[in-house]
């Protein structure tokens, strides 16, 4: 390209020349791109195709494939409940303890009832049931009482082998409107010592038992007499 610029101003045509050079370079680049496009790689390329070429069945060893183990969900749908059931069947073979706190049972022990827990080692403990924590085998009850004018609260695991028996001493007349009767810790709602109620209950129990025993004895006597009479 000729540069028709005046010698008085040597840099006057510089801008123009630069622009020209740039445009030429662009043309060259375009040429490159078109050249590449012409030599495109193989179409429908797949990496397996390389392997397929030199595949020799004689050289290759057959690898034994072990089927995956059976999924635990198909073997046992709910393992935790199954374990709980087995544990309960060991610790509570008669099912009486389960029934006493079963939600389906209308005659179950509820919060607000006065319960008596007899333990293997130590004195029986009686108190108002404030809470029943139903967690399978760890099911526990919270009893509250006042001994020597000091409030005492005890948690008992109902399936514990240390617990010999749980008895309902007195039921709450009205259904408790709360699941947890923690308000009974407040002095305003505290029912105090349940010792008198428990003692009365135990006396009644003893009376009924003795009368039952007497009647049983009488029945057996009668039977014996009848037998004798028949003989």
């Amino acid at each position: 390209m000729s540069t028709p610029c005046a010698p008085a101003r040597p840099l006057a045509g510089l801008k123009h020349t630069l622009r020209q050079i740039r445009s030429e370079r662009r043309v060259q680049q375009r040429c490159y791109a078109t050249a590449q496009k012409e030599t495109m790689p193989i179409q429908n390329f797949h990496p397996g195709a390389i392997m397929r070429g030199n595949h020799k069945p004689d050289n290759m060893k057959r690898i034994p494939v072990i089927p995956p183990p059976k999924s635990a969900t198909t073997v046992c749908k709910d393992p935790i409940s199954a374990v709980t059931q087995s544990q309960i069947s060991v610790l509570d073979p008669t099912g009486a303890r389960t029934r006493l706190f079963d939600k389906a049972n209308i005659e179950r022990a509820k919060v607000g009832d006065i319960l008596l827990v007899r333990t293997k080692n130590g004195d029986p403990f009686a108190g108002v049931c404030l809470n029943v924590r139903r967690v399978g085998i760890d099911t526990a009850i919270l009893l509250r009482n006042q001994l020597t004018r000091v409030g005492v609260e005890m948690w008992f695991k109902i399936y514990s082998p240390n617990v010999e028996g749980i008895e309902v001493v007195q039921r709450k007349e009205k259904r408790a409107r709360r699941a947890k009767l923690y308000y009974m810790r407040q002095p305003r709602h505290d029912i105090g010592s349940v010792e008198n109620i428990v003692r009365q209950y135990q006396r009644q129990r003893a009376m009924t038992r003795s009368s039952e025993a007497k009647s049983r004895d009488a029945n057996s006597h009668k039977k014996k007499n009848n037998k004798r009479g028949s003989n």
């Binding site: 000091v150 005492v152 609260e153």
Partner: peptide
């Protein structure tokens, strides 16, 4: 044995 005791005061 798993039981828990709680008193109303510290003494």
């Amino acid at each position: 044995d798993g039981s828990v005791v709680k008193f109303d005061d510290n003494a």
